[in-house]
Every structure is written in structure tokens, then in C-alpha cells.
Simulated scan of single mutants.
Amino acid sequence: MSTEKPAGPVVEDASSEPETPLTPLPRRRIAVVAVIAVLVFGLDLLTKTLAVANLEGREPIRVLGGAVYLQLVRNGGAAFSIGTGMTWVLALVAIAVVVLLIWLARRLRSTGWAIGLGLVLAGALGNLADRIFRAPGVLHGHVVDFVSLFEPDGRAWPVFNLADSAICAGGVLIVLLSLLGRDYDGTRGRGKKAAKAKATETTETEAAA
């Protein structure tokens, strides 16, 4: 009886699993990111322009029965006015984030991630544009905020803008997709783990034979 063993274990490539398609990147995923980013960035720019033109020097405007107050606030810091006085640092961080998001967009195979990434990218670009082009100067510009919830002057919730809302919405969507096991490349996290476990088990079985 021959005791010769195979030259090596035959292990199925996890990438061959049906739920882990390593196909060329669909162009439509990049298109989804680009369209959402452009549209939301445009809306953010428009609303900020209107806010500056109509709310400058005015008392807060009460709308929706006091659920929302419209007032112009120029924020030199990050969200919740953190980091005021470090505007140039925040601008550089925002630039790095935008570059990272654009790099990641080229690797997307998930429509859900494309939508979330487009929203976050639009928000980052919207506030970055303020820091670059608005007073008092390049990389020191103050972000235009104009929505205060429930109370004026941000007493109930920090004053924000459309870009902030886009970042929050996109971030929530991405976190939700991650919790559901859906990765940016279109694969399922649980599927990857199962395929890896199966491959490891096969290797150990054949090695013990």
C-alpha cells in the first residue's frame, strides 16, 4: 500500500465563494459617489449662500413652531465648536479625509457604501470649502452654520449646516452596513469568516490524513 501523500493540501480559494466576487470595479459605484457628492455639495453651498445673504445681523428666525431656529453662526472649530483656534489644523485634517475618501471610492463594489461615502465626501468638501475660501483667510476660514434645533444659539443642540447633516447621515449608513456584515467591496464579513474557517478546517483535515 502506498503511503505517499499529495504534494500539498488542496485548499479552496476563499475568493471563489459566490458571495465574494473579485470582479473589476463597476464604474457605476464611482458614479453614485460622484453624483451624490456633487449634488449635496451644491445644496450645501446654496444654503450657506442664502444663509449669509438673509441671516447676517438678524435675530434667530423661529420656524416649525420653534422646532428649528435659523441663525447665522460662523464656527472656527470642529463639530460642537471643539478646537476653536486650530482652524488650519482642522483644514489639513479635512483635506486628508477627502483624499482618503476618494481613494476608497475607487475600490467600492457596494451601492450602499457608495451612497454613504458620497454623503460623507460631500459634507467634508462643503466644510473644507468654507475653511479655504471664507474669512478670515485660507485654511483659517470659519464654517457657516445656520440651523439650531429647539432653542436659538445652540442651547439645546449645536448649530449645524447641511454638510454636517450629510456627514452624520453617511456615517450612520456606513456603520449600519458594517454591523450587517456588508463590506465596502461588496462582500459579506460573515461569509469571509466562514470561507476562511472552512479553508482552515480542510487544511487541517488533509494534513492529519
Results as ranks from 00 to 15, higher is better:
Leu177Lys: 00
Lys198Tyr: 10
Thr203Pro: 00
Ala67Cys: 05
Leu90His: 02
Ala91Pro: 01
Met86Asn: 07
Asp164Ser: 05
Val73Ala: 11
Gly123Trp: 07
Gly171His: 08
Asp153Tyr: 14
Val11Lys: 02
Val138Phe: 15
Glu151Cys: 05
Leu121Lys: 08
Glu201Met: 09
Asn54Gln: 07
Asp130Ser: 05
Val147Lys: 00
Gly189Phe: 14
Thr84Val: 15
Asn161Trp: 12
Leu46Tyr: 13
Arg58Gly: 00
Leu45Ala: 14
Arg134His: 15
Asp130Gln: 04
Val35Ser: 00
Pro158Ser: 06
Val120Ala: 13
Ile102Leu: 15
Val144Tyr: 09
Tyr184Asp: 02
Pro158Asp: 09
Ile82Met: 14
Trp157Gly: 01
Leu180Lys: 12
Ala78Pro: 03
Ser165Glu: 02
Leu46Lys: 06
Leu125Ile: 15
Ala7Glu: 15
Arg58Cys: 05
Ser148Gln: 04
Phe150Ala: 13
Thr203Ile: 15
Leu162Glu: 02
Leu46Asn: 00
Ala94Pro: 03
Ala195Gln: 06
Ser110Trp: 13
Leu180Tyr: 07
Ile30Gln: 07
Asp145Phe: 09
Thr3Cys: 10
Gly76Cys: 04
Trp103Asp: 12
Arg182Met: 10
Leu25Thr: 14
Leu179Arg: 07
Leu39Met: 12
Asn54Glu: 09
Val175Thr: 11
Val11Glu: 09
Asp44His: 03
Leu22Phe: 13
